[in-house]
Design a binder for these strands. Structure first.
Lengths: 343, 343
DNA sequence: GATCGCATCAGAAACGTTTACGGAACCCTA
DNA sequence: TAGGGTTCCGTAAACGTTTCTGATGCGATC
């Protein structure tokens, strides 16, 4: 005898009642419920996932989809670890378990999502590394699977999403550099396919225009969003006759690579060139310290979790239902890397 | 009509036969199997996870347990991503899905594992951040749950594990520094509770002894295994009258923090002190470049996957059964940080 | 020509849970 | 006392698979 049957037998009670007691259903005597709860704890009873999922369709699991072995997102896992932490603090209140769905770079993300959904693996999904055109979104929206996307897309589907305000970042960084006298400002840019890349370039252009400046194409340094990319940017940048006096970067890895590339030529951030970075947990541990914009990853996670629960009817008591669309703001962390000023 | 029933109806065949055809069972005509496979692909049929798990106990999922929000393991950045990538390349050959089981730091890891197992969530487990005394191991071994531990423990249970050879690292690093004339060598150490901490300190002691040197207690710099810890080490180290001339570190975050702490005082690794680090993907992007020992994270993942499958009877055709216990070796990546030599 | 073995398939039970339904006991009211 | 409501609980069906047990047809064997 196993599972709920064992528990029922032990209490000399029917399995139906045990189930109702455990799930907080109304029609069960409070005294009985106490007994059941106590016995369950003692016997270490945990409902079998498969049985529950099969009958009720609910798994108690939320999946966070992320890609492994991928060079395109450039987010290391300190990023996700921080976000996970935030998500979990919210989910813990609702007995929801968070698991990371690891989609190999060998597999098509859309096929992966379809598989996961068809298998009935999770009650809801958080998808990350959203592309501008992302078929996962249409698929999930059409099937009414509860989900939230970390990153905007071009999709028409009225789906919930959360994103970091890269426009505000571009504006703030450029304004800061212009105020310090810079006129030839370079930016780094990842693949246009991810939203950050597109948005960041366009907004930088507008921010410069607001100061009567233009963003020349050769001031846009495209690269892979990792150390090698940053290193490469440094090399390309240094051999320019009209070398930019400042550069705005889009993640930590690029910053570290750039630092290395510059230092090999004796060029020091903050003294010979101004550098502003983004989302750099190590910012204060680089040398010189990196001026960057960042935010609490935990807060990102919390916002994600709340946005997801807001789409799930089962939680409408706690979270006002609706499709959340929200931009999270960065905060400035001042360092030495942009101390370089021009008259 | 849904699921396998729909498929069976569409083919005018019984559901039993469909199931057997899909699962490669022997007693089904090859022509029928072809038809079933074709129809399944066309209709996009994917077996429901819950149904399958309930009946057969097999989920097709392997869980990689890791802790979030924890300060103790100190494995930051790309460590897990690299490992995942390796694990997946092996699993992909067997239609196994890898998911990361995220155990919040709020929850007791043993309770978490019990919950996951009782729910029948996965067919096998990879546990990381193994402690010297780790109740998860006894629990899993006793229940005969297929699992492999990343990291050794003191457990008597004859369980499979995989670990990095920290002893060899300690020996190699110390030998290298001694050969360069160093006599006052410091080491950094994380919590003794994680195996790395214990093993590393003890082996460093032995390695020094082999050269007629002793490891004084005040040359063991305990710290949290992150940037703040490394920074703190630098500060403590610099105010010593008998300042060590070399230091051996245990991960990348500590190295970065130490670099920062040193540079604030104008002390430069490789010129004023010798530094050797461990497992540092950014090693060549630091300035000066960090001499460190590292290995392919992908290989770690592959070894983990193979060790796990070697414990699962279902895969004995491909992987000789047995309990793998294996130490993975580091390789030296030479940098500038240990250029500092003494006569 | 009866028997056996083999290949192939249909049918049904089982996995552990949730939940719709109905029944028993009890209290209240007319 | 009959009727109706409420509270609590037991029963059984259902979820989508896998797998066990037979059944059928057919060729080979004696």
């Amino acid at each position: 005898m196993k599972g709920i049957r064992r528990l029922a037998q032990h209490l000399d009670i029917s399995i139906g009642t045990v189930s109702r007691a455990l799930n907080g259903k109304p029609d069960v005597n409070e005294a009985t419920r106490e007994r059941v709860l106590k016995a369950a704890a003692e016997l270490g009873y945990v409902p079998n996932q498969a049985g529950r999922a099969l009958r009720s369709g609910a798994t108690g699991v939320i999946g966070f989809m992320m890609q492994t072995g991928s060079e395109i997102t450039g987010q290391g896992d300190t990023f996700f670890m921080g976000v996970f932490d935030g998500v979990q603090t919210v989910f813990a209140r609702h007995q929801l378990d968070l698991v990371a769905l690891l989609c190999s770079s060998e597999e098509d993300p859309e096929a992966y999502v379809q598989r996961i959904v068809a298998r009935g693996f999770a009650d809801g999904l958080i998808i990350s590394a959203t592309r501008r055109k992302d078929p996962r979104i249409e698929f999930l929206a059409q099937r009414h699977i509860p989900f939230v996307a970390l990153g905007r897309s071009l999709s028409d589907a009225a789906h919930p999403w959360l994103d970091l305000d890269f426009e505000a970042y571009a504006t703030a960084a450029i304004d800061r550099l212009v105020a310090r006298g810079h006129r030839r400002i370079a930016i780094s840019a990842p693949h246009d396919d991810v939203n950050l890349g597109y948005v960041f370039v366009e907004q930088s252009r507008r921010a410069l225009a607001a100061h009567g400046l233009t963003l020349d194409d050769d001031m846009i340094f495209r690269s892979t969003p990792n150390e090698a990319g940053g290193y490469d940017i440094a090399k390309r940048l240094l051999q320019r006759p009209d070398r930019p006096t400042a550069i705005v970067l889009i993640n930590e890895s690029v910053s570290i690579g750039l630092y290395r590339g510059l230092s090999e030529s004796g060029v020091r951030p903050g003294r010979d060139i101004a550098v502003i970075g983004l989302n750099s947990p190590h910012a204060t541990f680089l040398s010189p310290t990196l001026t960057c914009f960042g935010l609490s990853l935990r807060d990102v996670g919390i916002a994600l979790a709340e946005a997801l629960l807001a789409t799930m009817p089962a939680y409408q008591a706690d979270y006002p239902q609706g499709t959340v669309r929200r931009l999270l703001q960065f905060e400035l962390i001042e360092g030495e890397s942009d101390d370089y000023r021009l008259p």
